[in-house]
Design a protein around this nucleic acid. Structure first.
Lengths: 147, 147
DNA sequence: CAGATTGTTCAGAAAATAATGAACAACGCA
DNA sequence: TGCGTTGTTCATTATTTTCTGAACAATCTG
């Protein structure tokens, strides 16, 4: 089961340990603290802390309070929508913004070389791709609305 | 411009050189041979050959024949649909198949532990996610139908 | 506030990934 | 068939990414 999430992590270009952490939390009925995670996964404290930081950054794990215990406890967020939208906002949007800016710069270049039909065609094409990719995002988010 | 494709390659977990190769072909009005690519990108023959192999594997570059020249010449495929569907078929589908099989195995486990309500709930949830992801693919392909 | 516990950071080690280049294979041509 | 050219493969090297663990910071407790 943990392996399932390790693979998902790989697709998303996240470290293996991040997938492991989420996986173990996903199948744990009880919240876990850092030491639990270290022991179960046999990874260092540093990796555990870093991995949890990443997972929290896009809302894939939640911190829970356990009365009478000073340590932090974590659970896996199970609402796919929250995770995906968090991930998009934190890890994808910055790229997209950058892409837009970059495209703008290319457009300027195109203006300068108004005679180079081939170059202009390529930029147009690229812009078409970008438009389609942007259209996909809202739909994807909508698909997972119910949860 | 090449940089744009290098970034896209990174998102898709492809080597940098693969992005460079596609980028340079994308903005080249003329077909290019391996030596051209090596010179322009300052990469080795091995990388060039390997990178082109990957790009061909999902139809992102085409081989063209140049009369009177024994070398292979390459151009960038500019139909997004072809590239995406090729990429999905070659690089994504295998994972999905594997995922299905893996899920089946988990279901068996669930049967065995029919009393563990939590475990069953988690498997159900995971299955729900998988279903949504699968639903997204056809839509994405449809979105880029016109080209 | 002192002492103990818990979490974070970061320099260095280890592991994974990608690039190189030389050996080799495939192919065309005379 | 033999020679020259072009493309591929793969062991080695280089680079990048990830993990480790000890030092440090933050926080609680009495």
């Amino acid at each position: 089961m943990v392996d399932v999430f390790v693979r998902i992590a790989a697709v998303l270009s996240l470290p293996r340990s991040v997938g492991e952490l989420y996986g173990i939390l996903f199948i744990s009925p009880e919240p876990m603290c850092i030491e639990d995670l270290m022991r179960k996964l046999r990874i260092s404290k540093g990796s555990t802390s870093q991995g949890l930081k990443i997972l929290r950054s896009f809302g894939a794990v939640n911190t829970t309070y356990v009365p009478g215990d000073r340590r932090d406890f974590f659970t896996a967020e199970s609402a796919l929508r929250k995770i995906v939208s968090g991930f998009v906002n934190e890890q994808i949007r910055p790229y997209l913004e950058n892409g837009k800016e970059r495209m703008a710069r290319l457009e300027d270049l195109a203006q300068a070389e108004a005679d180079n039909a081939f170059f202009i065609d390529r930029i147009d094409r690229l812009r078409g791709w970008q438009k389609r990719a942007n259209a996909l995002l809202p739909f994807a988010l909508n698909l997972i609305k119910p949860d």
